[in-house]
Amino acid sequence: MQVLRYIGRRVLFVVPQLFGIILVSFFLVKLIPGDPAVMMLGPTASEQSIADLRDKLGVSKPLVVQFGRYMHDVVRGDLGTSWQTTRPVTEDLFQRFPATLELITLGLLVAIAIGFPLGVAAARRKRGAVRRFADYYGLLAGAVPDFWLALVLIFVFYTLLGWSPPPLGRIDMAVIPPPTITGSLVIDSLLAGDLRALLSALGHLLLPVLTLGVINAGPILKMTQSTMERTLNSEFIRYAETCGLPRRVVLRQAVRAALPSVLTIVSVLYGFLIGGAVLVEIVFSWGGAGQYAVQGVLNADLNPVLGFVVFSAVLSLVIYLIVDLLYFALDPRMRG
């Protein structure tokens, strides 16, 4: 009951939050220099045809009017058209967002698989090889840029060893992709029972997922370690020790208490990576959402940029809602 009331309140807040986000990003995006009409017609176009196109696009009207028109369309689920792809932005994004989500979801799972156990192990010992390794790891993961690591991995695993497929998209050119259901190639090829497509998709995911995983394990490691150190020193863990509970039981209780903080950092990383994985997407020609938005910025194609912002905002709000529900599940004190 408590939970349902909470969700209801959150969903109510989503509307003004989304409006605010679109408002701010609309005016920010309009500040980007570049005239779409010039871009579309090319350098040889006449003044007159540019002016005509500007009128047709609506970009000659005052900004407030443009915003009103944009909102009018957004409410109807229309995010405009991209002049580069000549397709509705909504359609483009529905194709590209799953690519990005598949990438960063798997990337973060790998990051958790590396960072969490390492953080727990490092917190248990103040000295020793594990602790030192964790310290260096945190330092390096924070210092190395993701695209650079991506290039190194490509050089080693594709160029030198030939173990991974070329960094060109999400699936072999020669393999027919499975019919789109969720947009995730892994899930869709599983649903279609298409082993060839599945293997090819996994092969292409390998290096970009590894890149994101290795880099983002850094902050997860740090957060896990510091939270676990605090928890292991907390009063209730010391009490559990005086009760003579077995070591693994005490450790399990401590890990359990550290989960909410780890959840927080993972959700922050997730929200960030929706756009923040763009360099990795570019290196692997992933065709994801971030790449799409950057193309838009570079070519004064503003609808894709705004559409990307709207999509990410909705997604972030959904993620934070899920995270809050998980907090509810993890901590009885929140249930009040």
Binding site: F236, Y239, A240, T242, G244, D331, P332
Partner: peptide, 25 residues
């Protein structure tokens, strides 16, 4: 062996139970 004794043969009563009991159990 000591862990086996603690809580079974030697038990502790603590001063601040609301902080020392596990909040999620």
């Amino acid at each position: 062996t000591r862990r086996g004794l603690l809580g079974r043969d030697i038990a502790m009563v603590i001063p601040n139970p609301r902080a020392e009991l596990n909040p999620v159990l």
